[in-house]
Write a protein that binds this DNA or RNA. Structure first.
Lengths: 171, 171
DNA sequence: AGACGAAATGTAATAACATGACAAGAGAGA
DNA sequence: TCTCTCTTGTCATGTTATTACATTTCGTCT
């Protein structure tokens, strides 16, 4: 996987590797974010909203600098901290996630619950699926409890090939 | 956690957060690596061996540039690819692991088995414990199978506070 | 409304992490 | 020895992330 394809890959079905109504999903997510920020007294400022829009629009993991490019196009500031601060806010409040394997960010697929999901990353099409229930996290917590380690955050990512890419290579 | 402490932190008990006989553990690991490379027809060259020694010596996660500094001190080349190539070799052959959360590398704590362990990362002392059995990985594989996703690599890391740092903050 | 403190933003500079490209050297087998 | 492959040395560059500080915006108190 080159860095280039990581940034501009044109394929894949990120939301659980399944097709969906994109404009609806975007509007819903933004509305949910509005409601959530309102409720929690968070300031959902223009940059923050814009970054979330960008992430939702692309619907895949995006590097901070890719986001920064889009911000610039839309007349926002273009220095790295602009993007990183907005991303910090979104991640801190569960509206987006960081994919450590890719050093990239993705909009949260389920704003309704606080969660630390698992991710499945396709190395061919760069689609990223968010796995919400994740029994893996529970398993990890059990191990930690046995060790006396206090978990504050879990990072669970699987890298491999998504169903749709498996089909393509088989044919 | 600053980048500085990440590089030179002086405390912590990385091997499962437990104390151990360090020189023995280092010699054993190097001997095991020698044997393993011999067996598999791998070229365990001086740079590669040196990088493994550095990782074993520090016994914690080390960034590529920290390793590079030590290589330079020992008369090896000092350009980034020197370190990255050796690290690639070690990681590819299970002699070291990359901690994605830290963009850093750590010597493998159990060279005898091929494995993809889980890691517990203390954000106070930067100790990293390797968890070998990891039922979390099994759970992840089950989820993937249900989805039709083909896992090639798993990344399971927990960030939090290790037992010894919990004790310190309590007192 | 005016003053104040906290939070957020704008901007420059720099640090930290990682790869590409190509030349030169070392080892294994014909 | 020739040659092919793997490894190393080196320069250059690309990518990701933070520090520091000035400025603005926003809520709140009076």
């Amino acid at each position: 996987m080159t860095r280039e394809t990581a940034k501009v890959s044109a394929e894949g079905h990120p939301l659980g590797f399944a097709q969906h109504d994109h404009s609806t999903c975007m509007n819903d997510a933004l509305a949910a974010a509005d409601a959530r920020c309102e409720e929690d007294g968070l300031r959902f400022t223009p940059v923050r909203r814009k970054v979330l829009e960008i992430l939702l629009q692309d619907h895949r993991a995006l590097g901070a600098y890719a986001i920064l490019d889009k911000l610039r196009e839309d007349g926002f500031g273009s220095q790295p901290p602009i993007a990183y601060r907005a991303l910090d806010f979104l991640v801190a409040n569960g509206l987006a996630h960081k994919i450590e394997r890719l050093n990239a960010f993705i909009a949260c697929a389920d704003t309704n619950h606080a969660h630390t999901p698992a991710f499945m990353i396709c190395r061919l099409c760069n689609a990223v699926a968010e796995e919400l229930s994740s029994s893996a996290r529970n398993a990890l917590h059990e191990v930690a409890r046995a060790t006396g380690f206090k978990i504050e955050r879990t990072i669970i990512e699987a890298e491999g090939i998504c169903p749709s890419c498996i089909n393509k290579t088989e044919s």
